[in-house]
Design a protein around this nucleic acid. Structure first.
Lengths: 238, 238
DNA sequence: GTCTATAAAGTGATAGAC
DNA sequence: GTCTATCACTTTATAGAC
């Protein structure tokens, strides 16, 4: 498939067309599965155009990641800042922290020219592809952001073992990334219909799910009839 | 890096050495980032060996996926069967369903000759790489397994909207896959130490986290002071 | 800024000798 | 079962004409 002829003829700059084609292909196929030729062909440009406009394929990949991830992480920090300023040092409600963590997706997708579906897929690629390897600026932004949110969670859940908290945050991040990157696959596998855009409802669902998981008490076992007939290799009991 | 000379000299069959080398490389680099030459070099075999023993690179990939995923899915179904037989048609406790869902990882990793870390990484690759595309037999097994577990969850959570449940299961699966595939990345980004093997404790943490998220009540908002000053684009409230 | 032509390296696969 | 040699492609990147 190639770019609509209209975009080429209506004089959209080659650089812009390349960027749009790359974002579409990256979100669809993953960063490592798209060749320079795929991009230039889809953009209706010459094979040398990517290297002329972006120096190398790798630079283009990094540019795309930075363009979409950094604004999200920046807005996350800004929202957390605002919440903490408002509360004046007290622990925040989990839901508000989680809201600051995911709502930036909803606001940044509106600022972008991508469809919601493509935006989330691309975001999932950024976070899940390449074994988590990201450009330096993105990696640093992520570290800073996660450090701040981790502290906010710690304050919101005083007394919780830090290692236990880290795992709960890990599960939370995993639920978020997977939902974005693999929503289509999951729908196919479950033959279910978890619905399309708008995504506000999904983010709301995510917040409630994660808040419950993060807040959950250690004595949850009250809910369950403990099976005491465990064999030798049955080493964990919920 | 190449295979330890001992394995070559001690007469381990070439086919076996290729399989071990491939599994190690696939888990480390991902299925799409490993070439036939990478594998044969690591295994100390000739470049033509992969095609001789496995017909093609693609067949080898599918074999590896099947070897590790299918036993896990089979054991999941067997455990769920046993639970449902025991309970005689009544809804099961969430923790028991989740236990049947994740404990097979712990038992299958013991049956395999892989280290825990490698096993989980490889499993994460199977589920996360290639945009969720799996060999036919694996895909079918997954569909069957997810259908059964979805029904079990529905019975355990009567009255819950099916679409809401589907999303909660989606979050659950995401938390699990991400934890396995990206534990190392996450540790790096958080500069945290979420601990290494043994994994029993992690699975226990996962069960409690997911159970709380799945079971969570719709009126969770009681916990939080609702911000009523939302702007026009602030469309979801937890 | 765009094009062609080409370099240099890598890919999976296979025929045929041993 | 293993090896070499090679085929037929594809990849990124670039030099140089226009």
């Amino acid at each position: 498939m190639s770019m609509t002829k209209s975009k080429i003829e209506s004089g959209v700059a080659t650089r812009q067309r390349l960027l749009e084609a790359a974002e579409l292909l990256f979100s669809e196929e993953g960063f490592d599965a798209v060749s320079v030729r795929d991009i230039t062909e889809k953009a209706g440009a010459n094979v040398a155009a990517v290297n002329y406009h972006f120096n190398s394929r790798e630079h283009l990949v990094e540019l795309v990641m930075e363009r979409y991830i950094n604004p999200v992480n920046d807005e996350r920090l800004a929202r957390l800042d605002a919440l903490e300023k408002k509360s004046g040092g007290k622990g925040l409600p989990l839901e508000e922290i989680l809201d600051a963590f995911v709502r930036p997706f909803a606001t940044q997708v509106r600022k972008s020219e991508l469809s919601e579906k493509m935006f989330y897929k691309l975001m999932g690629r950024c976070l899940g592809d390449r074994g988590g390897v990201m450009p330096r600026s993105v990696e640093q932004g992520f570290q800073l952001m996660l450090m701040r949110f981790r502290k906010a969670f710690e304050k919101a859940l005083p007394g919780l073992d830090p290692e236990e908290l880290l795992w709960r945050v890990h599960f939370t991040v995993g639920a978020m990334i997977h939902s974005m990157a693999h929503a289509e696959t999951f729908n196919r596998l479950t033959q279910g219909d978890s619905g399309g855009p708008p995504m506000e409802k999904t983010l709301s669902r995510f917040i409630r799910f994660s808040a419950a998981g993060l807040r959950q008490e250690m004595d949850q076992e009250l809910h369950v009839e403990q099976p005491r007939t465990k064999g030798p290799q049955e080493e964990f009991l919920f």
